[in-house]
């Protein structure tokens, strides 16, 4: 489950940021490593909500710094069957 979510998130970030997926790891920080901003992050989260059937509160996004943290947040929602 975790790997699947990570693969999905990595794929979406690669598309949005026009990067090679191999450049994106769980430890990648949005701003410092990927040069991603909040608009990129929100795009990926909106896609996750549509494609993975999760609903994330706005507040959950505000302290996220890394791809892995986003994956964990999505997985928490998937685990409770949203």
């Amino acid at each position: 489950m975790d790997q699947t979510t990570f693969e999905w998130v990595r794929g979406r970030f690669a598309e949005v940021l026009e990067l090679d997926p191999a450049e994106i790891s769980k430890n990648s920080r949005f701003a410092d490593d990927l040069d991603a901003d909040s608009i990129d992050l929100i795009e990926v989260v909106n896609s996750a909500e549509h494609s993975l059937g999760v609903t994330m509160a706005e507040e959950e996004l505000y302290d996220l710094e890394t791809v892995g943290q986003l994956v964990d947040a999505i997985d928490r929602h998937r685990a409770v069957g949203e």
Binding site: F30, A31, A36, D37, S38, L61
Partner: peptide
């Protein structure tokens, strides 16, 4: 604030 904080 985090680097991707909305409306930073």
């Amino acid at each position: 604030l985090g680097g991707a904080f909305p409306n930073r």
